[in-house]
Structure formats: structure tokens, C-alpha cells
Computed example of a mutant assay.
Amino acid sequence: MNEPYQVKLDGFEGPLDLLLHLINQYEIDIYDIPVAQITAQYMDYIHTMQRLELDIASEYLVMAATLLALKSQMLLPKQEIEETDEEYMEDPREELMQRLIEYRKYKEAAQKLQDKEREANQIFTRPPVVFDHHDIRQPVGKGDLSIYDMIDALGKMFERKKWHEPLETKIENSGVSIEERMTEVLDLVKHSTEGLAFDRLFEYPSRSHIVVTFMAILELMKNNEVTCEQEHHFDQLYVFYRTCNGQ
């Protein structure tokens, strides 16, 4: 009997990271968060992860419940307050807003430290040497797309292909390993000089095919063998082959 896939991704940093990603993506004012909109977008991500039976940490589900509670609270009719009443009505979004601002501050500080570390890793000292030829290769970055961008692209692919529910009821091993699918994907991308549309890598509406392909793309990105790019937010994603010089 085929054993089900156990899918766990390492790119998730927590629900605050996902919320911050959504705020940046939709250019939302962090001091005036539209709870209904952010809740709908957040739940879309959770539903996409659940459809793939990804290992979702409980903190994501706790945040989902918090957002739904906030949404309900914001929909309740506001009590009229007399002008003489000096009681301060706290915005129910206040706590979430403060948590996000604090998280963003530490995330930006961590990014600056990471950039400094990356720059330091490119500095070497050695005795003077004469170069006979110019074969100096520059380091290649892994791109700006995060795991959330990839999940968003996957969710939009479901909608475009009208795959509201994959045909299989559970993820079963189809006989193709992630390593084999990586080879297949790489071969397809190599022959697409202008980039291969993300959707074209998902040919069959079965969870096994979708999950193995998705994991294969993530592994290829991690190994710096392919890069995923989109011209603007919400545009179609394209997968490009990365040669040694990053072209």
C-alpha cells in the first residue's frame, strides 16, 4: 500500500510574518488595518495550505480565530457615546497593530544584520595576485519571492484551473519522488528560454502530483537551480533556469 506524503515546509516564520507579508503585498496601512480584507486574504492562505495537507503550526490557526473574532467585533454596531463621556473606546485592532509594528521592527533589524553578514562573507584578504583572464563570477541571490508568494501563486492556479477540490481525497505516493520530479521540472525549465509559466508545471488535479511538483520547485529554488519571478504583484509567476552566471 502506498504511504501518504508527510509534508513539512521550513519557510514559515509564523502568523505575524504572514500578516506582514499581506500588509506589504496589498499596500495596507498598518495603523488602519481593514480587518475584513486581511482576514479574507489570510484565510485564503490557510485554506490553500490545508488543501495540500501541509503541516500548519497551531499558532496559524490561533491567529485565524483571532482575526475572525476581530472581524465579528468590528461588525457589531458601535454604542453611541455622549460628548461628556470621557471614557476612551479602545480600537479592537490596537493589540494586533502593536504586535505587528513590534514584529516589523525586529524583522527589519534582523534583515540588516543578515545583509551585513552577507557582505562580510564576500570579503577576503590574500596576497596580491595577477589574473591572466577575467573569469570572476559574482554571487547570485535567491530572489525576493517568499514561501507565501509561492503559496499565493498555487492558490491562484487552483482558481484559474477551477480545481476547487483535487480529485484525490488524500495525498498518496504516486510513485514519483521529489528528486525525480525535480529532474523533470528542471528539464522543462531549461528548454523555456523566456521562462515557464508556473501553472504549466501542474498538469493533473491530484494532490500527489501537486504536492510533489510544489516541493520540487521549492527545492530547486533552495538549490539556486531555478528562480521564480513576477513582474508585478498578483501577476502570473514564471520559472526560469539559472545558469552558473545567474543568467
Rank of each mutant, 00 (worst) to 15 (best):
E172W: 03
E219Q: 15
V176I: 14
A216H: 11
M150P: 01
E203W: 11
L188N: 06
F158M: 15
D199R: 12
L188W: 04
T183D: 07
K142W: 03
E117M: 04
G143C: 10
D144R: 12
E219N: 12
K222R: 15
L220C: 12
R207F: 00
S192I: 06
I217D: 00
E165H: 10
T243Y: 03
T227E: 13
V226K: 04
V226T: 06
M215L: 14
P128N: 07
A216Y: 04
V176T: 12
E184R: 01
G155D: 09
F198C: 12
F198Q: 08
I151N: 01
E194S: 14
R207Y: 03
A216T: 14
Q236D: 10
K190N: 05
M157A: 09
G141F: 10
E219A: 12
G141W: 13
F234A: 09
D187W: 07
K161I: 02
E180T: 02
K116W: 01
D144A: 13
E179C: 06
D187F: 07
D149I: 03
D135G: 11
R200N: 08
V185I: 15
V185C: 11
H133I: 08
K156W: 04
G195I: 07
R137Y: 08
E229N: 05
H233A: 13
C228V: 15
T227W: 01
Q236N: 11
K162A: 09
E119Y: 13
K222L: 05
T125N: 07
E194M: 13
V211L: 08
G246I: 09
A197K: 10
D199F: 13
E184L: 12
R242I: 00
E231D: 05
E117N: 00
E117K: 03
N223Y: 12
V140H: 02
K116G: 00
E231G: 02
R207T: 01
T169E: 13
Y204N: 12
F240D: 00
H134A: 04
M182C: 15
A120Q: 13
I210M: 03
R118N: 04
H209G: 03
K161W: 04
R160Y: 03
D135C: 13
E179A: 15
M150C: 07
V212G: 01
E229Q: 05
K162Q: 12
T169P: 00
V211E: 02
R200E: 08
F240Y: 14
P128R: 09
K142I: 04
M150D: 05
D152R: 05
L188M: 14
T213I: 02
W163N: 01
N121R: 04
I136N: 06
E229L: 06
V211K: 04
W163P: 02
N121C: 01
N223M: 14
E184K: 06
V226P: 05
E231Y: 00
M215V: 08
Y204M: 15
Y148N: 14
A153N: 04
H191N: 15
I136H: 04
F198P: 07
V239R: 00
I151V: 14
K116H: 05
Q114E: 09
R126Y: 14
G155C: 08
A120L: 15
Q114P: 00
K190T: 09
D199V: 15
L167S: 09
E119V: 11
N223H: 08
E179G: 06
V185H: 03
P128V: 12
I171H: 02
G141R: 13
E179L: 10
S192L: 10
E229V: 10
S174F: 01
R160N: 10
K222D: 05
I171K: 02
H233K: 10
